[in-house]
Design a protein around this nucleic acid. Structure first.
Length: 662
RNA sequence: GCGGGUGUGGUGAAAUUGGUAGACACGCCAGACUUAGGAUCUGGUGCCGCAAGGUAUGGGGGUUCGAGUCCCUCCACCCGCACCA
């Protein structure tokens, strides 16, 4: 059931321009910024009021192309537009009602999926303020009530949708832009010379837009206006869990802020979480709480989850403060969030609200920065492979994927198969064996007698494999506990890092996990002779020191740029090298234990203890890089002939220029 | 349709600013040790070629002494928005 009720809204539209512009200053991924830009949806245009024939009312439209107004030959309003009833004339009423019944029968999804040119004439006319022509007002579903003003001036010569509509309903088309100077330009491109437009004739489109905005303003029939797709955020929930609004209503029903000294307004305790009457929140049942001592009435709606998530990071800066959300000193010290690692699914809700909220606090002087999250990394998702079986509905048979071309696709359904039944899971050719088919039938008793059609010479039922989210509904969830059980948490952790760059999404695949497992065992073995800890404390040699310090350099640099996969590679290379050097020197190995600690926290803790240290390795000082150990004795110079490297020649690093030239 | 991103071996991937492409790992091949091995160790492995050598970062073109990296163009795939006036 839908019901109109008064709601609190956050006027984040007032911040639209800043939310858009300040994206420039933050270090976020291009795709995330793009999503936010699209969501804000800024467009420059004009708001224009059209007079109606035989009425005192006007029809307000929004257009990004005021220059084309001489080509506006009809108008269109959305089926849900408030003026629909008053604009409909007696003779058209039954047709309009039939059309409205049709549009109401179509969901938004249907409208988008099935774009048909439909509409109906209202019987009313507006007056084009420049041509002075009477132009018909139509209703059509291609105009959306939620965007702009829900009404447009239609210029069939310069808009594809208007053109299709005009052709279908035989409405006049007047060319107003000559694009012959711009070969290849489409209707969307704002280029060309104005024609058939009186005082605009000969102007370039851009200048014509400016000129038209001036004229419209001078005539007091509208003005230049920037429009946003971004909507204000509905902020009321009729639920128990959520922050109560610090708002009370006085005897006249005027909303007032709860005085500072009475803040915060805490959620009252109750054990009745059922909704209140007339769709109100459960809080409305608590009469003793709703009525305040001075006879005011509390707001009983609560805030949504995005309220808390919009500012929690500020509270982290001063979590025990009972006077304010965070002390200014603390906020000035911490400033903002240096690095936010989060999923792209928060692109428009949480991340937009948090930015808005932060800017609001900035305007009030409570935070020193304009943006909450300086740098943001979208960590990639570990995906799953979804295994699907083709099911031929008319014959109730399952069809092996290699045979699917022989069937009519409209008769085929795809049924998810639990990945536990699938052989060679993760490979292109993954399949159900005879045993797998039996498991599937036990799992889905409804298909216990279904036939599985296999290729003539095959005993395998090939499944269709698709990369997608791990999801209970797709039966492809892999539990990390099993991996941890087999290889340990350190291996699991490092293998996830080793898979590739942090931003990359890819299906979970354990094919290479033995490499990481082997690496950790080899590192461990460096410390031992058989089962005995066996370490040398003598001064390390040059090669060992170079191995250590080049590792320190690489790990430091790679962490700095969030390249954890190459960190793992660097550790592997160093351990390979120390193995071939037969190094068991504690002056080398101990700093590596510290470097490795964030990557393999459990094993390094163990080694740290075995090395005789007190406390935890995770509090140890980070090893210091000493560049002098990195200097090469010889440098290999590539020798190029015709731009191709043909040879390498080694020279002592201290060789003179003269020597090199020879 | 509009906007954005990505294309490198059999596979996951390296190459931070234009400077020996394929590090590291998986897989594969050969060998060692073994009663056995899906354990461990050693060596090899982009492609063509016995070799010398040639060739190679989606295709084509350009800038440069030198291009995976910069520019143009085409193609493929992925993501976002989508009747936005």
């Amino acid at each position: 059931m839908q019901k109109a009720m008064p709601q609190w809204n956050l006027r984040n539209t007032a911040y639209a321009e800043r939310l858009l512009n300040d994206l420039e200053d933050i270090d976020w991924s291009v795709s995330l910024k793009t999503i936010q830009r699209n969501w804000i949806g800024r467009s420059e245009g004009a708001q224009i009021f059209f007079k109606l024939v035989g009425s005192k009312e006007t029809l307000e439209i929004y257009t990004t192309r005021p220059d084309t107004i001489f080509g506006a030959t009809y108008m269109v309003i959305a089926p849900e537009h408030p003026l629909v009833t008053s604009l409909t004339t007696e003779t058209q009423r039954s047709k309009i009602e039939a059309y409205l019944a049709y549009t109401q029968s179509r969901s938004e999804v249907e409208r988008m999926a099935d774009k048909q040119v439909t509409g109906e004439f209202t019987g009313s006319y507006a007056i084009n303020p420049f041509t002075k022509q009477q132009i018909p007002i139509w209703i059509a579903e291609y105009v959306l009530v939620s965007y702009g003003t829900g009404a447009i001036m239609a210029v069939p010569s310069d808009d594809e949708r208007d053109l299709a509509f005009a052709k279908k309903f035989d409405l006049p088309i007047i060319d107003v832009v000559d694009k012959s100077d711009y070969p290849g330009a489409t209707l969307q491109d704002k280029v060309g010379k104005m024609i058939n437009s009186e005082f605009l004739n000969g102007m370039e489109v851009k200048d014509a837009i400016t000129e038209m905005c001036k004229r419209v303003e001078a005539m007091k029939i509208g003005k230049a206006k920037i429009n946003y797709k971004l909507r204000d955020a509905g902020f009321s929930r009729q639920r128990y869990w959520g922050e109560p609004f610090p708002i009370v209503y006085d005897q006249e029903g005027i909303a007032r802020a709860v005085p500072l000294e009475d803040l915060p307004v805490e959620l009252p305790k109750t054990d009745n979480f059922k909704p209140g009457n007339e769709g109100k929140s459960p809080l409305s049942r608590l009469a003793g709480w709703v009525k305040t001592d001075n006879g005011f009435t509390r707001e009983t709606d609560t805030m949504p989850a995005v309220a808390g998530s919009s500012w929690y990071y500020l509270r982290y800066m001063d979590p025990n403060n009972d006077q304010s959300f965070a002390d200014k000193k603390a906020v000035n010290y911490w400033q903002d969030v240096d690095l936010y690692v989060g999923g792209a699914e928060h692109a428009v809700a949480h991340l937009m609200y948090a930015r808005f909220w932060h800017k609001f606090l900035y305007d009030l002087g409570y935070v020193p920065t304009k943006e909450p999250f300086k740098k943001l990394i979208n960590q990639g998702m570990i995906q799953g492979v979804i295994e699907l079986a083709y099911y031929h509905k008319p014959s109730s048979k399952f069809i092996s994927a290699e045979l699917i071309a022989e069937y009519d696709r409209s008769e085929i359904a795809e049924m998810p198969v639990h990945v536990d039944f699938v052989s060679d899971y993760g490979y292109e050719h993954s399949y159900l064996s005879a045993e797998g088919i039996e498991k599937f039938k036990d799992w889905r008793p409804a298909f216990k007698d279904a036939e599985f059609v296999l290729a003539a010479d095959s005993e395998r039922f090939i499944t269709k494999s698709e990369v997608g989210k791990m999801s209970k509904s797709k039966f492809n969830v892999i539990n990390p506990d099993d991996v941890v059980e087999e290889y340990g948490a350190d291996v699991f952790r490092m293998y996830e890092m080793f898979l590739g760059p942090i931003e990359t999404s890819k299906p979970w695949d354990t094919k290479g996990i033995t490499g990481v497992s082997k690496f950790l065992r080899r590192f461990w073995d460096l410390f031992f002779e058989g089962d005995q800890l066996s370490l040398s404390s003598s001064a390390p040699n040059k090669e060992e020191l170079k191995a250590l310090h080049s590792l320190i350099k690489r790990i430091t640099d790679n962490i700095e740029r969030f390249s954890f996969n190459t960190c793992v590679s660097a550790f592997m290379e160093t351990v390979n090298e120390l193995r071939s050097l037969k190094c068991n020197n504690r002056h080398i190995l101990e700093p590596i234990v510290i470097l490795l600690a964030p990557f393999a926290p459990f094993m390094t803790e163990e080694l740290w203890y075995l090395l005789g240290n007190d406390g935890t390795v995770h509090h140890a000082n980070y090893p210091e890089l000493q560049e002098e150990y990195l200097v090469e004795d010889t440098i290999s110079y590539p020798v190029s002939v015709n731009g191709k490297k043909r040879a390498l020649i080694d020279f002592p690093a201290d060789a003179s220029k003269e020597h090199l030239k020879k």
